[in-house]
Write a protein that binds this DNA or RNA. Structure first.
Lengths: 349, 349
DNA sequence: GCTCTGCCTGGGATCGATCCCATAGCTGGT
DNA sequence: ACCAGCTATGGGATCGATCCCAGGCAGAGC
């Protein structure tokens, strides 16, 4: 650790320059200065130019908190995701950030690590900040109803908890899961495990339903012991997958319900020296970059996280514009990126 | 797309409840209500409890903008990173977010996509919001000097542009790069390419310097044509790497200066069916998850992005507490995660 | 000359919470 | 009795920007 010598930023006490100083320097009143800078109301053109020039010269930056207090409307949106280090949520946040900035809004971002308590806490902070709206990947139904009661527009993304209360943007989890499962069944797999984190939220529920629907449609009986709940982080998933693949009658294929679970399964398979796809087929939800880097690549449902975020922002701004329009759920379709991680089961050869 | 019927959040006009309403409902003045809720100043215990109870009952949430305006200090920090979809920056943001929340601060997050213009724009937005401090992975020297002039505490992370003007938290790029390069030289490699994005910022400059220093120390002559500038995204890096590896006299080892470049090199090697490490050794900066998922794993310098973010937050709060303390640069060390992507050059066998 | 209209400006109130200050009630010491 | 000291409360000013409104001034129309 090395140290510099000077205190940062020079040595003047430097009070921040306010609109009052700008007005004085330009020889007009605060009101006129305000009109000149915001462009609302009458100002003589040369006065307007002079005020703006003075403002630039003094480095005047209007105080957003004061403005928002007066106008009772802020230029920022709140975003609450489950886990920033997960590439899916990071991409979502990136998409939201881009779109928000494009509309001159700033983004308050927090992650709740999947905890409903943190989620509630952050929601209250957003209310305190009087954000114009909130985009959330909910962990409980509480957030959205709370925010809606506070009359803050909310859009649920990825998962939906408060259908009928607020807007939502989700992907068609059911049909994507069904499609992927059907592919495995068509290859001849019968023992197809579903490794999943939870089965009550819309994502988990619909993915499970799609998986079941594929079995039902093909007439293959479903062994419920192959539906495995495997926790929230890679390591928990790895351990569960290890147990699953080490069973006396192991599955010939695994469907991982998201990228974290897929990573756990992938690592477990490597530990057990199971070769993919010869000894084990693997498919997953969430097409994140490593899935196309490994050999063989992992066949996965590609949900465009960035597009999801962008759509959520559009939806949020529509809602802000017309608060009384009927609530809407936007369903985005997902595509399957087929790679080399699937093959007929070894028993079939 | 399906549609619901009800407008969100019920149908009351519902003006937000202010401290005035709380005070009236509790039969006290605004001043007393304020003291009861903030805990500053004298309040009779039973009055305090009554006010708090009323506040909870009415669902009162204090307006942060009003409070900040009065106190001239906000409870939020600005964070500006280059690219949220890059796992390194995402991890950084995650670390910052955790620590900020722990201190009851909210985080305003933006990414600038590496553009100095966007960076300047966002910096101004942060000034307007009167954030308590800013953490930035700078793209130009401008941000930090600008914010410092506005008397907003700044911490530069990952890269350093404004040494002497503001605090910084960076990793020891030079010695990590030197260490990694030395390992390759010791294995017998002579033609070691450095694939890098830029060489003027501290990160690029120091990594390059470390690479050169290793050559100098070992006495092996350095072929400058092996230092390749390869753009900012995976695809650009992949194309450059493709050219590099397809040369008539290709390198036997590649040092990728960050995870994006490493991904490009990895993909290019796969396209050219070069087996790693037999035909090509690969090492990289940034230990992101895919590097331990692929076979062989990629030997990489592990910078703990989350820890970096957390350290930056500590540094920022120290600076907020004592604005006049001398500027400081915190240098974190990085460790090398050795995996299977290196071997002696094929010619040496 | 007088009014009417439209352009332009400044004064004061306002948003919601905090904080300084004046003041009132009470206790206790002299 | 009186004052000092402490607890407890409310009134008003304040933060910075916006916005409503009153009013000044000039030119046009009668």
């Amino acid at each position: 650790m090395k140290s510099g010598q000077a205190a940062p930023g020079g040595s003047h006490p430097a009070p921040r320059v306010t609109i009052r100083e700008v007005a004085n320097a330009a020889g007009v009143s605060r009101s006129t200065a305000s009109r000149a800078l915001t462009g609302r109301g009458y100002v003589a053109p040369q006065v307007r130019d002079r005020v703006r020039e003075v403002a630039t010269r003094l480095g005047y930056v209007p105080d957003a908190t004061a403005r928002h207090l007066r106008q009772q409307a802020s230029q920022s949106i709140g975003v609450l995701v489950s886990d920033l280090s997960n590439p899916f949520y990071a991409g979502l946040a990136a998409g939201i950030s881009q779109q928000a900035r494009k509309r001159q809004y700033t983004m308050m971002l927090a992650d709740d690590g999947g905890s409903p308590e943190v989620e509630a806490e952050v929601a209250e902070a957003f209310v305190a900040l009087r954000v114009a709206g909130v985009i959330v990947t909910p962990v409980s139904a509480h957030v959205s109803t709370y925010l809606a009661r506070q009359r803050i527009p909310v859009v649920e993304v990825d998962r939906q908890f408060a259908a009928g209360v607020c807007d939502a943007v989700v992907v068609d989890n059911g049909s994507a899961a069904r499609q992927l499962t059907t592919q495995l069944l068509d290859l001849g797999h019968r023992r197809i495990a579903l490794v999943i984190d939870e089965m009550h939220w819309t994502t988990g529920r619909d993915r499970l339903a799609g998986y079941r629907a594929a079995f039902a449609a093909s007439g293959v009986p479903l062994d419920d012991s192959l539906v495995v709940t495997a926790g929230w982080d890679v390591d928990a998933a790895r351990i569960e997958a290890h147990k699953l693949l080490g069973r006396s009658e192991p599955p010939t294929a695994v469907f991982a319900a998201n990228n974290v679970l897929a990573e756990g399964v992938w690592r477990a398979a490597a530990e057990l020296a199971l070769s993919i796809p010869e000894q084990l087929s693997l498919v997953s939800f969430d097409d994140v970059s490593w899935m196309s880097l490994v050999r063989p690549g992992v066949t996965a449902v590609a949900q465009d996280a960035v597009a999801l975020g962008e759509t959520a922002v559009s939806q949020l701004f529509e809602r802000i514009q017309s608060p009384l329009a009927p609530v809407r759920t936007v369903l985005l379709s997902a595509t399957v990126a087929a790679r080399g991680s699937t093959a007929p089961p070894s028993g079939a050869r």
